[in-house]
Amino acid sequence: MTVFRITNSNYKDDLSGQGAKIYGGRWNVPGHQALYTSQHISLCVLEMLVNISLTESSVKYHLLKISIPDTMIPAIILNKKLKPNWQDDEAYTRFMGTEFLKNKQAALLKIPSAVIDEENNYLLNPLHSDFKKIVISKSNPFKFDNRLFNF
Protein backbone atom coordinates (compact mmCIF):
# COMPACT_ATOMS: atom_id res chain seq x y z
CA MET A 1 0.00 0.00 0.00
CA THR A 2 1.13 3.54 -0.68
CA VAL A 3 0.06 6.55 1.38
CA PHE A 4 1.07 10.19 1.12
CA ARG A 5 2.09 12.95 3.47
CA ILE A 6 2.86 16.63 2.97
CA THR A 7 5.23 17.96 5.60
CA ASN A 8 7.44 20.90 6.37
CA SER A 9 10.69 20.27 4.48
CA ASN A 10 12.62 20.45 7.76
CA TYR A 11 10.94 17.18 8.73
CA LYS A 12 10.98 15.39 5.36
CA ASP A 13 12.94 12.45 6.77
CA ASP A 14 11.05 12.23 10.05
CA LEU A 15 8.42 9.54 10.53
CA SER A 16 8.62 9.66 14.33
CA GLY A 17 5.23 11.28 14.93
CA GLN A 18 6.79 13.80 17.32
CA GLY A 19 4.77 16.72 15.92
CA ALA A 20 1.50 14.97 16.71
CA LYS A 21 2.90 14.03 20.11
CA ILE A 22 3.55 17.69 20.88
CA TYR A 23 0.42 19.26 19.35
CA GLY A 24 -2.10 16.46 19.05
CA GLY A 25 -4.43 16.18 16.08
CA ARG A 26 -7.94 15.18 15.12
CA TRP A 27 -7.24 11.53 16.05
CA ASN A 28 -4.77 11.87 18.94
CA VAL A 29 -4.29 13.86 22.10
CA PRO A 30 -0.92 15.47 22.83
CA GLY A 31 1.51 13.03 24.41
CA HIS A 32 0.94 10.26 21.85
CA GLN A 33 3.09 9.84 18.78
CA ALA A 34 1.16 9.50 15.52
CA LEU A 35 1.84 10.01 11.84
CA TYR A 36 -0.97 11.35 9.67
CA THR A 37 -1.11 10.23 6.04
CA SER A 38 -3.69 10.17 3.25
CA GLN A 39 -4.70 7.76 0.52
CA HIS A 40 -4.41 10.47 -2.17
CA ILE A 41 -2.09 13.41 -2.76
CA SER A 42 -5.07 15.69 -3.38
CA LEU A 43 -6.54 14.73 0.00
CA CYS A 44 -3.19 15.63 1.61
CA VAL A 45 -3.50 19.08 0.05
CA LEU A 46 -7.03 19.58 1.36
CA GLU A 47 -6.13 18.31 4.82
CA MET A 48 -3.20 20.73 4.92
CA LEU A 49 -5.32 23.65 3.73
CA VAL A 50 -7.78 23.26 6.58
CA ASN A 51 -4.92 23.12 9.08
CA ILE A 52 -2.43 25.79 7.98
CA SER A 53 -2.78 29.53 8.12
CA LEU A 54 -2.22 31.69 5.06
CA THR A 55 1.03 32.97 6.56
CA GLU A 56 2.38 29.42 6.49
CA SER A 57 1.94 29.17 2.72
CA SER A 58 5.51 30.42 2.25
CA VAL A 59 6.96 27.50 4.25
CA LYS A 60 8.83 24.93 2.16
CA TYR A 61 7.10 21.56 1.99
CA HIS A 62 7.87 18.04 0.83
CA LEU A 63 5.53 15.39 -0.50
CA LEU A 64 6.35 11.98 0.90
CA LYS A 65 5.33 8.74 -0.75
CA ILE A 66 5.27 6.17 2.03
CA SER A 67 5.33 2.43 1.37
CA ILE A 68 3.52 0.08 3.70
CA PRO A 69 3.95 -3.69 3.22
CA ASP A 70 0.82 -5.36 1.86
CA THR A 71 1.03 -7.82 4.75
CA MET A 72 0.20 -5.02 7.20
CA ILE A 73 -3.57 -4.99 7.60
CA PRO A 74 -5.00 -1.73 8.93
CA ALA A 75 -7.51 -1.47 11.72
CA ILE A 76 -10.51 0.41 10.34
CA ILE A 77 -12.92 3.01 11.65
CA LEU A 78 -15.88 3.09 9.28
CA ASN A 79 -17.60 6.38 8.65
CA LYS A 80 -21.03 4.74 8.93
CA LYS A 81 -20.15 3.47 12.43
CA LEU A 82 -19.33 6.96 13.73
CA LYS A 83 -21.91 9.11 15.44
CA PRO A 84 -23.67 11.81 13.40
CA ASN A 85 -21.63 15.00 12.98
CA TRP A 86 -18.50 13.30 14.30
CA GLN A 87 -16.42 15.84 12.37
CA ASP A 88 -17.49 18.50 14.88
CA ASP A 89 -16.43 16.52 17.96
CA GLU A 90 -12.65 16.31 18.12
CA ALA A 91 -12.75 14.91 21.66
CA TYR A 92 -14.65 11.92 20.24
CA THR A 93 -12.17 11.21 17.44
CA ARG A 94 -9.16 11.97 19.62
CA PHE A 95 -10.33 9.39 22.15
CA MET A 96 -10.70 6.68 19.49
CA GLY A 97 -7.37 7.40 17.83
CA THR A 98 -5.51 7.66 21.11
CA GLU A 99 -6.93 4.30 22.23
CA PHE A 100 -5.71 2.79 18.95
CA LEU A 101 -2.23 4.22 19.54
CA LYS A 102 -2.09 3.03 23.14
CA ASN A 103 -3.30 -0.51 22.33
CA LYS A 104 -0.61 -1.02 19.64
CA GLN A 105 -2.66 -3.82 18.03
CA ALA A 106 -1.95 -2.55 14.51
CA ALA A 107 0.59 -0.23 12.93
CA LEU A 108 -2.03 1.69 10.94
CA LEU A 109 -5.61 2.81 11.32
CA LYS A 110 -7.79 3.62 8.32
CA ILE A 111 -9.92 6.63 9.25
CA PRO A 112 -12.45 8.69 7.31
CA SER A 113 -11.45 12.18 6.29
CA ALA A 114 -13.34 14.97 8.03
CA VAL A 115 -12.80 17.05 4.88
CA ILE A 116 -13.99 14.53 2.26
CA ASP A 117 -16.33 11.91 3.75
CA GLU A 118 -15.80 9.45 0.92
CA GLU A 119 -12.01 9.37 1.24
CA ASN A 120 -9.67 8.09 3.91
CA ASN A 121 -6.63 8.99 5.87
CA TYR A 122 -4.30 6.58 7.65
CA LEU A 123 -3.05 7.14 11.16
CA LEU A 124 0.28 5.36 11.63
CA ASN A 125 1.56 4.26 15.01
CA PRO A 126 5.34 4.79 15.25
CA LEU A 127 5.44 2.76 18.49
CA HIS A 128 4.04 -0.42 16.92
CA SER A 129 6.63 -3.18 16.50
CA ASP A 130 6.02 -3.42 12.72
CA PHE A 131 6.37 0.31 12.11
CA LYS A 132 10.04 -0.12 11.14
CA LYS A 133 8.81 -1.85 7.96
CA ILE A 134 7.16 1.39 6.81
CA VAL A 135 9.51 3.48 4.66
CA ILE A 136 9.61 6.67 2.66
CA SER A 137 9.90 5.47 -0.93
CA LYS A 138 10.00 8.93 -2.51
CA SER A 139 10.39 12.48 -1.28
CA ASN A 140 10.05 15.58 -3.47
CA PRO A 141 9.71 19.29 -2.81
CA PHE A 142 6.05 20.32 -2.95
CA LYS A 143 4.66 23.76 -3.68
CA PHE A 144 1.05 24.66 -3.12
CA ASP A 145 -0.59 26.40 -6.05
CA ASN A 146 -0.96 30.03 -4.90
CA ARG A 147 -4.54 30.11 -6.21
CA LEU A 148 -5.48 27.90 -3.27
CA PHE A 149 -4.84 30.86 -0.99
CA ASN A 150 -6.97 33.39 -2.90
CA PHE A 151 -10.17 33.03 -0.92
Rank of each mutant, 00 (worst) to 15 (best):
V59F: 11
P30M: 08
H40F: 10
T71V: 11
P74G: 03
S57L: 09
L82H: 00
P74W: 03
E56D: 14
H32E: 14
I41D: 01
L54P: 08
E56P: 03
A75E: 09
Q33D: 11
W27R: 04
P74C: 01
N79D: 07
K60S: 14
K80G: 02
D70H: 12
S58I: 03
N28H: 11
K60N: 11
V29F: 15
M72Y: 12
E56S: 09
L82N: 01
L64H: 05
S67T: 13
I77D: 02
S57R: 15
L78R: 12
H62R: 10
A75L: 04
L78W: 04
G31D: 12
L63Y: 04
M72F: 13
L49F: 03
I52V: 14
T55D: 15
H40D: 13
G31V: 09
I52W: 01
L82A: 01
M72N: 08
E47T: 00
A75N: 07
I73M: 12
S67A: 14
D70Q: 12
Y36L: 09
K60W: 08
I77E: 02
I66Y: 05
S58A: 13
S38T: 13
E56C: 05
N28E: 11
H62A: 13
H40R: 07
H40E: 14
P30S: 08
Q33C: 11
W27A: 00
Y61H: 12
S53N: 15
S53R: 13
L63H: 04
K80E: 07
P74H: 10
K65A: 06
K80S: 06
S58F: 01
W27Q: 05
A34I: 05
V45S: 02
K60H: 14
Y36Q: 13
I73D: 10
I73N: 11
L82W: 04
A34D: 12
Y36V: 11
L46A: 00
L54D: 15
Y36P: 10
S57H: 10
K81A: 02
A34T: 12
T71G: 10
P74K: 06
S53H: 13
H32C: 07
H62L: 04
S67P: 03
Q39E: 13
S67Y: 09
T37I: 10
Y36S: 07
I52C: 05
T55Y: 09
S53K: 15
I52L: 06
A34V: 09
C44L: 05
M72L: 15
S53M: 13
K81D: 06
T55K: 14
L63W: 03
N79M: 05
I76H: 07
V45Q: 03
N79V: 02
V29A: 14
I68D: 03
M72H: 13
G31M: 08
I66P: 02
I52S: 01
I77F: 00
N28P: 11
A75Q: 08
T37F: 05
L49R: 00
M48T: 08
L63R: 04
E56M: 08
T71H: 11
K81H: 07
H62Q: 13
C44V: 00
L35A: 09
G31W: 06
L82F: 03
S57M: 15
L54R: 14
V50D: 05
P74I: 06
N28W: 08
